[in-house]
């Protein structure tokens, strides 16, 4: 599984090279500041975990990196060059692929169509050129099998797969198409324990293949299993930013659960 991921990952990735750097990044929607003063570095071969409660600004952060909404403050650099994405296509062209929790795939489309969506193989360059369906089926089939994702039939609608499998297909697709930075939006949120395990193993495999991974979650346990760097957001601001060596799972859990506020609450509710 790792071998095939490594095979496809871009060969020039060196562990520790910064791929995406954000400095003082912020985003306002009209008068509302959804995010401010965010510094984030995504290095090759490392997992940066972004944790936060609902409304903490995680989604906004993803939208900036993946090109859905451009940022309004600060600078975003990819490979040391400042960028300002205005569409997901631009972000993809820089090797940044996003796998969304609930929007990873189009449920009623076949597995192979989903695998190649947006990067279809065609038999010519002219408009209306036919798709090379046989090749796409073949490639999707072998890639998924190599990565240990067992689907009954490559032609079945992807909605018939389990949630974990769908996430894995989406990750496998991103890696196959040369992603260097992988953004995983709450990949384990809707999954059971076993399914989460499958996705976490994939995350680790992508990291070991040299990709930079941004892992967004509200589950500190899952984050601590794969993370190298942890950032906790609260109401659009950073409240914790530590390397793995500087932080314990306990600290993360407490901070996520509310930290100081929780202590006050516990004092208040003391019986």
């Amino acid at each position: 599984m790792t071998d095939t991921l490594a095979e496809h990952a871009a060969p020039d990735l060196k562990v520790g090279t910064p791929l995406v750097e954000m400095e003082g990044v912020g985003k306002s929607y009209g008068a509302i500041r959804a995010l401010e003063g965010i510094d984030l570095r995504v290095n090759a071969g490392e997992v940066a975990c972004v944790l936060g409660d609902n409304g903490a600004g995680k989604s906004t952060l993803i939208k900036i990196i993946s090109g859905l909404h451009p940022h309004t403050e600060g600078t975003v650099k990819v490979d040391g060059k400042p960028v300002h994405f205005s569409s997901p296509r631009e972000s993809l062209d820089h090797g940044i692929a996003t796998v969304y929790q609930d929007l990873a795939v189009v449920g009623l489309m076949e597995v192979w169509r989903n695998f190649f969506l947006g990067s279809e193989i065609r038999k010519g360059k002219y408009p209306m050129a036919p798709l090379d369906i046989a090749a796409m089926r073949e490639i999707a089939d072998t890639e998924l099998q190599k990565m240990g994702i067992v689907v009954k039939d490559i032609n079945q609608p992807i909605g018939t797969l389990s949630g974990g499998q769908r996430q894995c297909v989406a990750i496998a697709r991103a890696v196959y198409f040369g992603a260097r930075v992988l953004i995983l939006d709450e990949p384990t949120a809707a999954l059971g324990v076993k399914q989460s395990g499958v996705v976490l193993k994939y995350t680790a495999a992508a990291r070991d293949a040299g990709l930079g991974v941004v892992f967004i979650t509200h589950n500190p346990h899952h984050a601590y299993l794969v993370g190298d760097h942890f950032i906790i957001l609260k109401l659009g601001r950073r409240v914790l930013d530590k390397k793995r060596s500087e932080v314990s799972l306990e600290e993360l859990t407490t901070e996520m659960a509310g930290g100081q506020e929780l202590a006050e609450l516990s004092h208040e509710l003391k019986r």
Binding site: L103, V105, A129, L131
Partner: peptide, 22 residues
């Protein structure tokens, strides 16, 4: 049989997801 058709189905099936993959 064409890429356009794939995009049509995807745009209707899950617009946000289609947009996210370009």
């Amino acid at each position: 049989r064409t890429r356009t058709g794939n995009w049509v189905t995807a745009s209707g099936g899950n617009q946000a997801s289609a947009r996210a993959v370009g």
